[in-house]
Simulated assay, not measured.
Amino acid sequence: MTSFRDTEGDRGCLRFVLAVPLLLFTLLAAYFCWTALTIRPSGTWDEEAYGGITLSCALTVGAAAAGAGFQLLPTVRRVMPWWVVSPVLLLGLVAGLRWMNGG
């Protein structure tokens, strides 16, 4: 028979394993959000820069949606607290605002 202490140890290991994909989604979103914020068009004629900003913003929002979707899985919800998805959602929000205001 397993005790409560054994179950908590397994849950800690499962948290670590499930945190890896969420960390990867967050790092991916952070990279693309950084590129979206650092690309500066040379002028109104610079369509390539605007296209790069739009692409970076779209990839950031996609990675944020994937991270939020991962958090919605029942197995993940049981083990991970809800606030662990907040960094990737914040990055998605920043990229969405950048996309609307200048992409």
Rank of each mutant, 00 (worst) to 15 (best):
L59A: 14
W82M: 12
F4A: 10
V20G: 01
F4S: 13
Y31W: 04
E8L: 14
T60R: 05
V88D: 02
F16A: 01
T54G: 09
A36E: 09
E48W: 07
Y50P: 10
G12D: 06
P21E: 02
Y50T: 07
M80Q: 15
S3C: 09
P87C: 06
G51Y: 00
W34R: 15
L93A: 14
Q71D: 09
G67P: 15
A63Y: 08
I53E: 07
C33F: 04
D46L: 11
R77S: 12
V61L: 09
L59V: 11
L37E: 10
A63P: 06
G96H: 03
F70Y: 14
Y50A: 11
G103R: 00
G96I: 12
L27A: 05
R98W: 01
T26W: 01
I53T: 08
G67F: 11
T60W: 08
T38V: 12
Y50E: 06
L89N: 08
C33T: 09
F25P: 01
T26I: 00
L28E: 04
M1V: 10
V79R: 00
W99C: 13
G96C: 06
L28F: 05
C33W: 04
G51T: 12
S86R: 06
I39G: 04
E47W: 06
I39Y: 03
L14W: 02
L97D: 05
R40H: 12
F4H: 05
T2Y: 06
W34I: 11
Q71C: 15
F25I: 01
A30W: 00
L93G: 09
W83E: 13
G96N: 07
E47F: 10
C57R: 03
R78G: 08
L22K: 03
P74M: 10
L72I: 08
P81N: 02
R78H: 13
F32K: 03
L55F: 07
D46C: 08
G62H: 05
V61W: 06
C57K: 02
T60A: 11
G52H: 05
